[in-house]
Design a protein around this nucleic acid. Structure first.
Length: 264
DNA sequence: GCCCAGGCGTCCC
DNA sequence: GGGACGCATGGG
């Protein structure tokens, strides 16, 4: 078990942020997620956060996954003080970090995300993992045996019959997923950029921007989805605010995304 | 049943 | 370059 300082981030906000789809609530203050081929439980305990893993796993993977080395405090302090809407978003959701997720998982997840609600995306991805992902075993905080499924590899989805992918509720995106697997397996890793992912059939500007932000950790990426468009139209009177073109646009976008959704 | 969801490809101008 | 349209499916 690992105990860390809570002040850096809010697990409930991260779980509901729409950047990751495999964080599931177990109880009031406890979540579980699968990342890096491992099942981990995470919970709040007074002023700390507890993790159901070894210290070496935390140092070797989770510390980076949670993006604990980025200085979010200064990024938030540098946000435009004149922009009341952005400041309110930071006040309410500024405890979200941008996770370092697996690139392949992000590509597939955001291909699926198009024209789907977040709960629908989550259940869809869970079905894909159960069907094509390797089974993994782990222990809960209480020492109970847990079985979960890793996110499927590109090879697994490349080999999967398209009908079986379709059975996971992906709808017309089945062919996009196949195309992504083929592209990913045939493209050298160092050639993958927020621009080059648009070569994938089914990946446009918005999904590419999400891949850049969540999969490549390019914090300047600012995905313009229906919510951002609504915010530009309603909160900024049709004019794109400066922060959307700033170095840390992706982080501010995340806070604003959550803030605006909290009103609906 | 109805509406909409962290869009995209295609067609047309 | 931009606007209209169809798209599979599931949650609320």
């Amino acid at each position: 078990m690992v105990r860390i300082d809570k002040s850096s981030f809010n697990i409930e906000h991260i779980a509901n942020s729409g950047q990751c789809f495999r964080w599931q609530r177990i109880t009031q203050n406890k979540y579980a997620f699968v990342a890096n081929g491992q099942y981990t439980e995470i919970m709040t305990d007074k002023n700390d956060i507890l993790l159901s893993c070894s210290p070496s796993y935390f140092e070797g993977f989770l510390k980076d996954y949670f993006d604990l080395s980025t200085d979010y405090f200064s990024i938030k302090s540098n946000a435009d003080k004149e922009d009341a809407y952005l400041q309110n978003a930071i006040q309410n959701f500024g405890d979200i970090t941008i996770l370092h997720q697996n690139l392949w998982e992000v590509i597939v997840s955001f291909i699926i995300s198009q024209r789907k609600s977040i709960p629908a995306i989550q259940s869809c991805i869970e079905k894909i993992c159960e069907k094509f992902g390797k089974e993994i075993a782990a222990l809960s905080f209480e020492g109970k045996n847990i079985t979960a499924h890793d996110f499927p590899t590109a090879e697994a989805l490349y080999d999967a019959p398209i009908m079986e992918i379709q059975e996971c509720g992906v709808g017309y995106r089945d062919k996009y997923i196949k195309a992504a697997a083929e592209w990913y397996l045939s493209t050298p890793k160092e050639m993958i950029t927020k621009e080059s992912v648009k070569e994938i059939f089914g990946v446009g500007n918005k999904v590419a921007s999400c891949i850049g932000l969540f999969g490549l950790h390019d914090l300047s990426c600012c995905p313009i989805d229906v919510w951002m468009q609504r915010i530009i139209d309603i909160r900024y009177d049709g004019n794109m605010p400066d922060w959307m073109n700033s170095k840390y646009a992706g982080i501010y976008q995340q806070y604003v995304f959550m803030y605006e959704r909290s009103f609906h």
